[in-house]
Write a protein that binds this DNA or RNA. Structure first.
Lengths: 104, 104
DNA sequence: ATTTTATATCGCAAATATACGATTAAACAA
DNA sequence: TTGTTTAATCGTATATTTGCGATATAAAAT
């Protein structure tokens, strides 16, 4: 029992942790970088990463679940985009986290 | 074989992902918040979190390994502090990540 | 209607993370 | 020295993540 006590923390701590967790793998950082450079098509992302198609798809799903990206069907392809609202919120989370430190 | 392909990514992607991963649990977010509020003593942190002493110690170790905090022995206690240099670097990483988006 | 192309999902194996109690170690107090 | 307090580490159980190939699905082309 009790092998995850995550729900005992405050909502905003959980939310920030979830976003951070989604960023916690180099493949997902690389994906976000590509998206922010305009590389949006799923297949292009698959081709650039040293991972199989199914693995990349899973990473994309995690980013989508975390709310950081959105996928839009474009013919036979899927075009992914950063969700700017969510990204900005994440950034401001991090900023407030690291600002006004009163520690030793 | 090959159950982690993380080393095949670029160094800065790995570095950012490691920092994000360290932030990817609400307990560690809560710890960083306490530290930034001047609550530095290990025992105080243990008392405030709904986790056992050993578990909190593990979370502290992860934050230390990620370079986000430093521990200093203070008599029988240990005083933890944010590593401001590392935190600022992390923040600037996130900022550049979420800035200048040219996506759809 | 069939085939091709692009993406998602399933099922599984290995790796890693999370949590705890028990134990150890280190500093201080008596 | 002995005991006490504080924090780290060990051992272990369970949960989650990572990765792949195989399969399913859905749109487009033939």
């Amino acid at each position: 029992m009790a092998y995850h006590k995550k729900e005992e923390f405050e909502a905003d701590e959980i939310q920030l942790a979830n976003i951070a967790k989604a960023l916690g793998h180099p493949a997902r950082i690389a994906i976000l970088k590509m998206l922010s450079n305009g590389e949006c098509i799923c297949g292009d992302i698959v081709n650039e990463l040293p991972l199989s198609q199914s693995t990349v798809s899973q990473h994309l799903k995690e980013l989508k679940t975390a709310g950081l990206i959105k996928g839009e069907i474009d013919g036979p392809r899927v075009c992914y985009c950063l969700d700017m609202k969510a990204c900005k919120k994440a950034l401001s989370f991090f900023q407030s986290m690291f600002k006004e430190i009163k520690c030793c």
